[in-house]
Design a protein around this nucleic acid. Structure first.
Length: 527
DNA sequence: GTGATAATGACGGCGGGG
DNA sequence: CCCCGCCGTCATTATCAC
């Protein structure tokens, strides 16, 4: 099943003009400029092309602006740190000037006025342009005269999808897992859910986003859902967005229309992620995706046993040997790195698969064991960012975030990679090493906001929350994944469910969320 | 003390067959 | 409808090397 974007990109890759090219020309960009941008970025990266075109347009119209805009896409895409548009903020322009300038960039007065209405008078040119582009992209995909691309559905599709599993135990409240595990839909799907009705008590402010393992013991997700205002979890396996599986449930009250993925898309297969393994990969190992990245890796004994099992065969080993090797490779996420040689992934490689900057967890007081553990407990950035992407257009000026169980800062990294400005981030994390990692990242990425890190969620009482809310003007997002170790299937000894020693901290997430909701409702937006 | 190493199953979803 | 085999799982802990 081809994705909307793949169809878009591949349907007429040759000839005088591709669909991608016609699409952008239709938006008013000069043909030569579009051709150059596509050549530089490839047809697959719609957003990158758009960014580049906007950069060109802005430079052309205001040549005095921004000598530090980097015209080299290779360096920009590898850093994914700063938006091309960050420099173009002239908030003191009058409305007419804004309309005129955006008109020169090809935007209609109507679209600009709508953007001003939604983003506010003080919004920068970059924010306005961003908003209009998002609207145009959405409109283009919705336009009926275009060949059918994204089919918009409501949540009944979702519940229907899971209903077949509901009756297994005769329990009507049973929460089933969708198959395939794609939540409300993926960036590459042509059929996605764009409408749902949230329970009244679940609606923001603030927005909240809660994460935990999908395969929790029975009843756990029902309990979590009942505390989080009866919002149904969105189950997503990250294997649909990157090269590694990660089955997780996400309960959130975010809008689900106009989501957009991080670009460039990460490697989608093992061989794309690790090209050097292709040479040694046996044809009978048919894996294309890795299993879940966990907190520990295989011992050297395991890889040696596999070497002993396959060494000495000229052609393919017997089926019984293949079965044993494949079983171990799947269990321990091993890759082929030489003749008869398999190996577990390096921490750097896991950082990449999860969407973190290289060396994000390296140094600063960590060791190898720490890195594997922290990474194994983290978000998959592309997956979470896809869900959070709707915040970009709702909060052009940035957001205040309360990040609970922050770990190595997956939430912060996801928001930053989306280009969302982080105004105030209160980050609560037990591990001092992890707090230091997030602090280092914060400084490395030249954040202009304010990072406050705390140690224990249990110390975050109402008075403290009230004080921070008064100071910041409220939280826009409360995000976090509480400890899963008492829920995870890998735990031999203490898989005790939500009441487990660590996993019961879920109730702290709920307490803090509920307290913030109450305070913000009481203050009613006045601070 | 610190960091690396290696051994330690149960549980539930899924699919195929009766 | 049930049964059964297959598959995968954000882990814990004792022990070792230094």
């Amino acid at each position: 099943m081809p994705s909307a974007m793949e169809v878009e990109a591949s349907s007429s890759a040759s000839g005088s003009g591709s669909n991608v090219m016609n699409y952008f020309i239709g938006m008013g960009f000069p043909r030569e400029m579009v051709a150059e941008a596509i050549q530089a970025n490839g047809e697959g990266s719609i957003d990158l092309i758009l960014e580049r075109l906007l950069t060109y347009s802005a430079i052309k119209e205001s040549p005095e602006a921004q000598p530090n805009v980097d015209p080299d896409p290779s360096s920009s895409s590898s850093e994914y740190d700063e938006s091309f548009l960050d420099g173009f903020s002239d908030s003191d322009s009058s409305e007419n000037e804004v309309i005129a300038q955006l008109a020169r960039m090809g935007y209609s007065e109507k679209d600009t006025k709508l953007a001003l209405e939604r983003c506010g008078e003080q919004a920068s040119m970059a924010e306005l342009a961003d908003f209009i582009c998002a609207a145009q992209m959405a409109k283009a995909f919705e336009a009926p005269e275009e060949k059918p691309r994204i089919q918009h559905l409501d949540e009944h599709y979702y519940t229907k999808q899971t209903k077949k599993l509901k009756l297994i135990h005769g329990d009507d409240e049973m929460i089933g897992l969708p198959n395939p595990m794609i939540g409300f839909g993926l960036p590459t799907d042509s059929v996605i859910v764009t409408r749902r009705t949230l329970p009244e008590a679940a609606k923001g402010p603030p927005y909240f986003y809660y994460e935990n393992v999908a395969m929790a013991p029975k009843g756990v997700w029902q309990t979590i859902s009942s505390f989080l205002y009866e919002v149904k979890p969105e189950f997503v396996d990250s294997k649909h967005l990157c090269a590694a599986a990660r089955k997780r449930g996400y309960i959130h009250n975010l809008p689900i229309h106009n989501r957009s993925p991080l670009v460039p898309l990460p490697p989608q297969t093992i061989s794309e992620a690790f090209p050097l393994t292709k040479r040694w990969w046996p044809s009978w190992d048919t894996r294309t995706k890795l299993n879940c990245l966990q907190t520990v890796i295989a011992s050297a004994k395991v890889t040696d046993r596999i070497r002993e099992a396959v060494v000495g065969y000229e052609g393919e080993p017997p089926l019984s040997v293949q079965k044993f090797v494949l079983e171990q490779c799947r269990k321990w996420n091993l890759v082929w790195v030489g003749r008869n040689k398999v190996a577990p992934l390096e921490p750097d490689e896991i950082e990449m698969l999860l969407g973190f900057p290289r060396y994000h967890t390296r140094g600063g007081g960590t060791n190898r064991t720490d890195r594997y553990k922290s990474l194994g407990n983290s978000f998959q950035i592309d997956t979470v960012a896809y869900h959070l992407s709707v915040l970009k257009y709702m909060f052009p000026g940035g957001i205040n975030v309360l990040s609970l169980f922050s770990g190595i800062g997956g939430a912060e990294v996801a928001l930053h990679r989306l280009g969302i400005r982080l105004k105030n981030v209160v980050s609560v994390e037990k591990s001092e090493v992890n707090r230091n990692l997030v602090r280092s990242w914060w400084q490395e990425t030249d954040q202009d906001g304010n990072l406050i890190d705390l140690e224990d969620v249990q110390d975050l009482r109402e008075d403290r929350l009230e004080q921070m809310i008064k100071s910041f003007g409220g939280f826009d997002l409360i995000i976090g994944g509480s400890p899963c170790n008492n829920l995870a299937g890998n735990n031999r000894l203490h898989r005790d469910g939500l009441e487990g020693k660590e996993s019961s901290l879920f109730f702290e997430y709920w307490r803090i969320l509920d307290t913030v909701k109450r305070i913000m409702k009481r203050n009613n937006g006045n601070y």
